[in-house]
Structures are given as C-alpha cells and as structure tokens.
Nucleic acid binder design. Sequence first.
DNA 1: ACCCAGGTGGCCC
DNA 2: GGGCCACATGGG
Length: 208
Amino acid sequence: MKKNKLIKIYNKLLDHFGRQYWWPADTPFEVMVGAILTQQTSWTNVEKAIAELKKERLLSPRKILRTPASKLHKIIRSSGYYKQKEKKLKIFCRFLINIDRASITRTQLLSLWGIGRETADSILLYALGKPIFVVDAYTIRIGERVGLFKAEGYEHVREYFESNLPRRLTLYKEYHALLVELGKNYCKPKPLCDSCPINRLCQFCEVR
DNA sequence: ACCCAGGTGGCCC
DNA sequence: GGGCCACATGGG
C-alpha cells in the first residue's frame, strides 16, 4: 500500500506523542468495563471508578451481577451517568458469562442495550483482538478539519480508515489512541492550533 | 459561571 | 436517515 495521507498523519502523531500502548488495563474484562464507563466521560473519572471496583474485588462478571444496584451506584459514581451504567454493566455481564468470548460478534454486542458502535468496537479491538478501527467524536472532528471527509457518519468513517490502512492490530490500536491524545490536547471544539502537531494538515491551522 | 468529556437510547419528523 | 434531548460527575 502506498503512503497515503492517513499514514502521514499517523507518523506525525507518533513522532509527537510517542507510543500509547492502549488500552490501559490489566485484563480484557477491565477493558470492557472501561469501554462502558468511559461513554461521554473523561478517563480520569473512569479510573477512579475502576480503582473502586478493584478495591472492592468486584472486577469479574459474576461478582458485578451479584452486587446490589445501590452499592454499584456508589462504587462507579465518579464515572457519571451511574444509574444507566450500572444497568449497562449488568446487561453486558449477563451476556458475557454465557458465551465463548472468541465467538463474540459485533452484531451481538450491538444488540445489547447500552452497547453502541464505539463501545462495541473498542471491546472488539482492545479486549478481543479483532481488527476493527474504533471511531469516536475526536476521529470525526479531526478527520473533518484535516479534510479527510465531510460530515460522514460513524460507519463511513470506520470504512474509510479500514480501507486506507494496513489491517494491523497494533496500528489500529495506536492510531485511535493517538487521535484521542490529539483531540484531548488540541483538536477541541475550540481549536488550539498554536502548537498542534499536525498543523499544515488542518484547515483551521492553515487559516491562522 | 461556564464548557467539556474516549456515547447511547428514545423520540420525533 | 438526521436532529434533539436526558443522562451525571469532575476538571479546567
């Protein structure tokens, strides 16, 4: 595959931020829990909730299922939307204990209440090792500003990345992680272009 | 006091 | 298919 714009951006990000070694977790199940808890929530808030789950020795599907809702609410409170997320965790754990993890499909995950596209794909890529490119709000925002696509939906963006990148797990994992890093630090709703590592590719930066 | 965060489901048209 | 809303905590 010849060197395309996607690879150029990747190399810039890698030079600037270095390897990310995503997803940060001790076990695949911790990845899955984190993927649910981080929905529309900053990771620092999720870390606190996961630390609480570990402290209570609850980081297993059966133990979460045995924990009363009110207790789980307190434990994961810092991750926000804690009533919804308690339900989402229980529904997901119930699904998980009755299945061979290697056989889990995207369609199965998407059929669960509380598991949308980004959460399903994060679980597939980072917990189950399937080559699915994870798209999030940053990916779409950055892609639009850089001029890769315009107002595309989730599936189109995912296909765009998957069809223009070699199908490699570590590349998918690190690319998504680097886009999050760029998004958190620079590519916010109000762009901070001054020291953005991909300036000259982003139309906002070129305007300045 | 705002604005933002590694979304999702339910509703409406 | 897209647009709007509720959901909730914590940090800048």
